[in-house]
């Protein structure tokens, strides 16, 4: 049973068709004490069916602490988006999602997939120039709710 209506699937399929590079979604999860890990899995499972450019890799948060730390993940469910051009070295987009990507978060996830998949970011030249001032690590957390 799919979570998306046939019409939504079609819309997404068309959007994803514009992707020029492959995206690998690292999905950090754990079996116990993670109510939203299964719903997250179910949402993510829909994506590769809509685009052969999207792959999901589930990573056990408990067993692979080192990998979680490498991607700045300290809780689950968490997603890290990588651009994967098939040269063996996926490029970390440094875009993360914490919590199940449902509701508005799903729309944000789709936008992020398209961005990492090659779509122009929508940043103006002026914004890009300003961002060049950032030369040391910077963390941006955007809090949202599903509704």
């Amino acid at each position: 049973m799919g979570l998306l209506s046939p019409a939504d699937q079609e819309t997404l399929r068309e959007s994803f068709a514009e992707m020029t590079s492959n995206v690998r979604v690292l999905f950090f999860s754990q079996t116990l004490d993670c109510e939203s890990c299964l719903p997250t899995r179910q949402i993510l499972d829909e994506l590769p069916l809509l685009s052969d450019k999207i792959a999901i890799e589930e990573i056990n948060f408990i067993l692979e602490k080192e990998k979680a730390a490498q991607y700045g993940v300290d809780r689950v469910p968490a997603l890290a988006l990588l651009a994967d051009n098939g040269d063996g070295t996926p490029h970390d987009s440094r875009i993360r999602f914490l919590g199940a990507p449902s509701g508005y978060e799903f729309i944000s996830l789709v936008q992020a997939l398209l961005l990492v998949g090659g779509r122009p970011s929508g940043l103006t030249d002026e914004s890009r120039q300003k961002l060049e001032a950032v030369t040391t690590p910077m963390t941006v957390q955007v809090f949202t709710t599903p509704t």
Binding site: R94, R96, A100, L123, S127, L131, M138, T139, V140, T144
Partner: peptide, 18 residues
């Protein structure tokens, strides 16, 4: 922003879960 600058990491956080 994260995509434009390698020093920036962006988190979308689902507030009700955390």
């Amino acid at each position: 922003m994260a995509f434009a600058n390698e020093h920036i990491t962006a988190y979308a956080v689902e507030a009700t879960e955390f």
